[in-house]
């Protein structure tokens, strides 16, 4: 009966991706002792969190959210984070590398790589160790960057949280091997097979709330080379000589730290307009992230423990 009625029914590709991500999350919760979900407040995190709510419905999330805060996020991101987490009743852990922050770590004086290494990578490793987590979900996608194209869904990390790209476990079918030794942990990427376009289409389909910075608005910006860098009063001493903030109709394709995240000129004020813009984009979203511009930078960062 039901069989015949349903024959030939198919899921759209977004529904297929959704089902795959939910399957991955449930496997982790079933097989790991103490998982946590990294939450960066960006669009990918927002999709990942939405999928987690679906995966465990009607129960509350069976893990906490972990925000590794550099202190340099946009004010809109902190506001959004606190409101949204409260609204859905999730547990949020915020971790900051206080030692580096106290030393005044910043990208201008110490360089982008060092600042990222201290505030993001070291901060993340500290937080994971402090929580004793054996599995951490991250929102990274394989289409973002070429070293990420070779990342597994279950990425095994040694005691130092490091990635060995030449020694990865083969992943066959959708059977995930979650067995690890004491001290090892796993980074899990439920959005591995999602593209930037899928993320936007899914946000549209599911009406997922996102930080307003993704929508175009007149904003104070500093032009640095080809990049548009958002300007806040707190950054006055980060300005280079001759730079003056001006109002620009713009939005963000990705959200990171204020000093290192560029905006793009855009008139896209609705999710439909963002999708249209993403469909026409000829340059990757990572282009607006200053950290990615070294020669092997993402691969190097991942080897050191970044997710």
């Amino acid at each position: 009966m039901a069989n015949n009625a349903l024959s030939g029914r198919k899921l759209t590709q977004l529904k297929m991706l959704e089902s795959e991500s939910i399957h991955i999350m449930r496997e982790v919760v079933a097989e790991f002792r103490n998982p946590v979900m990294l939450y960066s407040i960006g669009k990918d995190s927002s999709v990942m969190l939405h999928l987690a709510r679906k995966a465990f419905y009607p129960a509350p999330l069976p893990f906490a959210l972990l925000h590794v805060d550099t202190g340099y996020k946009f004010p809109e991101m902190y506001t959004f984070r606190d409101n949204f987490v409260k609204e859905i009743g999730a547990e949020l852990i915020v971790h900051r590398n206080e030692e580096a922050i106290a030393k005044g770590m910043n990208p201008k004086e110490f360089g982008v790589a060092r600042c990222c290494g201290a505030l993001k990578t070291a901060g993340l490793l500290e937080a994971l160790e402090a929580g004793g987590y054996d599995a951490a979900f991250g929102g990274a996608r394989r289409d973002e960057e070429r070293s990420r194209a070779k990342e597994r869904v279950f990425s095994i990390r040694d005691e130092f949280g490091q990635w060995d790209p030449k020694n990865q476990r083969p992943e066959l079918w959708d059977i995930y091997n979650g067995r690890i030794h004491d001290g090892e942990s796993v980074r899990v990427f439920p959005l591995s097979n999602w593209t930037e376009m899928d993320i936007w289409l899914y946000i549209r389909q599911e009406q997922i709330p996102i930080v307003p910075l993704y929508y175009a608005k007149e904003r104070l910006m500093v032009e640095r080379g080809a990049m548009l860098i958002p300007y806040y009063e707190s950054m006055r001493d980060q300005l280079l000589e001759g730079e003056e903030p001006t109002m620009v109709m713009s939005r963000f394709r990705t959200l990171g730290c204020m000093p290192c995240t560029g905006a793009v000129r855009s008139n896209a004020t609705t999710i439909d307009e963002i999708v249209i813009e993403a469909a026409a984009a000829r340059r990757s979203e990572r282009e607006t992230r200053i950290i990615d511009h070294g020669s092997n930078s993402m691969e190097d960062k991942k080897k050191e423990g970044y997710f």
Binding site: D143, S147, K150, P165, K166, P170, S192, N193
Partner: peptide
């Protein structure tokens, strides 16, 4: 995708493309 692959001019691992 990997530095070692570009150095050696070979492909070591499965890469996923979209």
């Amino acid at each position: 995708g990997l530095a070692a692959e570009r150095e050696q001019g070979i492909t070591i691992d499965v890469a996923y493309r979209y």
